[in-house]
Design a protein around this nucleic acid. Structure first.
Lengths: 338, 338
DNA sequence: ATGTTATATTAAAACGTTTCGATAATAAAT
DNA sequence: ATTTATTATCGAAACGTTTTAATATAACAT
């Protein structure tokens, strides 16, 4: 392995000069720069990362934290967000360290080791994540961004999905298709994204004059205060179908829920979309494989990751700026289920 | 941040001694060791990773490479394998750098940057992976292990699934359930795991005297020479159902294929498992959510990752040992589809 | 000519470890 | 009592960078 010394010798300059060229800093004559560049090229020189990190004090790593349940359960959502970050990171020189945390989280015991050993310059947190962890980061002044999550009453740097408008558009779509009794099935509002989707649902219905009173709204709403999952979809459908008249469309808080809903509807031999339409949210890969293909809101997950990476790096470079929220738009994908 | 110097001063010893304690090396008096330990405790000292890496020459990172298609398509398989590695890594002091590669892979252009910059001590490769990459690693003498993959004619360190016995057991199970005409649906044999599963299928059928001649075997076999996917399952079922008599069971090369098969069977209003049984392989999370619940072979994915981590570290420590193959057993999960 | 500023290069210190070799003290063997 | 081996500690060099401050040259205004 060649070192900066070898380059200096070969190019006939000091190592300081090589370093300047390497980092595009200070003054160096064009001709000299070229000599250095040539030497680097010829020896296929790559600066030593540890040496560099030692000298600068930066680790060059950023952490990616995700709740374990989200990572390897049915959802393929956050894996793709991660990949978006990884793509972005490829253009810079930082590595992303992925780790999971459990729901029961105690900063004293369960701190990811890249935090314990201070091996990251910043952290991205995807989805619902222990508040204790976020508070820890805040107190320790470790730069971080939330992705698709927010903590009520707190103002942190975050990348958000345009949940409200997405939900609104979904309802709009169903209304245009002639649906009159549109139900909502969802999991815990503890996740603000779900809450926002419900708000979009509700306000769209009001806008289109389909539901005006609280009682009617309640009648067609099924929300269970647990983590979203296919089984909520199943239970939600079972519950809403007991209403008279039965809903002619169901808007689900996300795709896994919608998948469960479809399963339950099909079990009852009810036709989708003839008798009842189903719309999801997220556009996970399965949505384009299931039967019927699921109409849903496409969330650009790679973009989510990329933007998180960008924002995080800005925060790292300028720690004292006020927190930002960046909202990523979604688009309706009309498939067979509506 | 405290450094080794601070500890030395506080404990009243030299930094060499602190280092010895830190690394459990050389001789140090019990009493002295305790003083150092106390100082470390009191100052909450954590050794600087870059400094350590610079001094030792090891990076402390290991790379995890996966084909992009595998990572964020329908399969949740390798994400869990990754998690298995990550769990194992938590007990050591190495970090895992996850990256994806595309199918068209040119070492000159597409080399993961942790390889380009020599930032890993070794690499784990999960699933089907470009041969050019494996050859590159081999030539560069970079320690690596393959997970659930092998290259014909080459003998590399690898962690294998017990594909043959798993398949054999699946057929055995179907036979016991009284099935007589058991079909096989699969994707490309380019992946040796699939090939092995087919071998298990074939030899089980021979063992139980269900299929003896080549023609009959061919009749109930549908193999398409492309990457496995649900759509192969669909096409496979469509094809096999044209045979007379139609098969009364279908063994799919993996769960995604089985999911596709189920979809196609249901579309034709054929009852599972009454008219036809379906068995998959892998036990991906969806297998326990779909309708009907999928009978399949459970592959312990976390174990796969953990074993890969262990083997890789052995290879890193003793590069000159002959290559090893470690086989991880599977277990049949009987669910509703058979 | 003279001071000022911009450009170009470098020596040396610093970053925080590990490790080699030297030295000292203690124990064991003659 | 003297050599030899074992145990214990430490100083100093090494790892490969970045960065600060010093110095040198060139360009430019006065």
């Amino acid at each position: 392995m060649s070192t900066i010394k070898d380059i200096a010798k070969l190019a006939g300059v000091s190592i300081s000069t090589v370093s300047l060229v390497l980092n595009n800093k200070g003054y160096v004559r064009l001709e000299t720069r070229q000599k250095v560049l040539d030497a680097i090229q010829k020896m296929n020189y790559k600066p030593s990362r540890p040496a560099r990190k030692l000298a600068t004090g930066k680790t060059g790593n950023i952490g990616f934290v995700i709740w374990e349940g989200h990572f390897y359960e049915v959802e393929m959502f956050y894996s793709e967000v991660f990949l978006g970050m990884e793509y972005a990171a490829r253009k810079s020189d930082s590595y992303i360290l992925l780790t999971t945390v459990k729901e029961e989280f105690d900063p004293k015991k369960d701190l990811p080791r890249f935090l314990k050993y201070k091996d990251v310059d910043g952290v991205a947190l995807a989805g619902r994540v222990p508040h204790a962890l976020v508070e820890y980061l805040d107190h320790q002044c470790i730069p971080f961004v939330l992705i698709d999550y927010a903590i009520p009453g707190r103002n942190y740097n975050c990348i958000q999905i345009d949940n409200y408008n997405g939900a609104f558009r979904a309802i709009e779509h169903l209304v245009k298709r002639g649906r009159k009794r549109i139900g909502f099935v969802g999991g815990t509002f503890f996740h603000p994204s779900i809450k926002e989707r419900y708000r979009g649902y509700k306000e769209a219905l009001e806008t289109y004059g389909l539901i005006n009173d609280q009682a009617l709204l309640k009648k067609y709403t099924y929300v269970e205060n647990v983590e979203t999952s296919p089984s909520i979809g199943e239970k939600g459908v079972a519950a809403l179908l007991t209403q008279t008249p039965a809903p002619d469309a169901i808007f689900c808080c996300n795709d896994p829920t919608a998948l469960g809903a479809i399963k339950e509807i099909q079990k009852r031999q009810i036709k989708i979309p003839d008798d009842i339409a189903v719309v999801g949210f997220d556009d996970i890969p399965t949505a384009s494989f299931c039967t019927p293909l699921l109409t849903t809101l496409h969330v650009p997950k790679l973009t989510l990751g990329k933007e998180a990476f960008n924002l995080l790096n800005e925060v790292i470079d300028r720690p004292n700026e006020p927190p930002q929220t960046r909202v990523i738009g979604v688009s309706l994908i009309e498939r067979e289920s509506s």
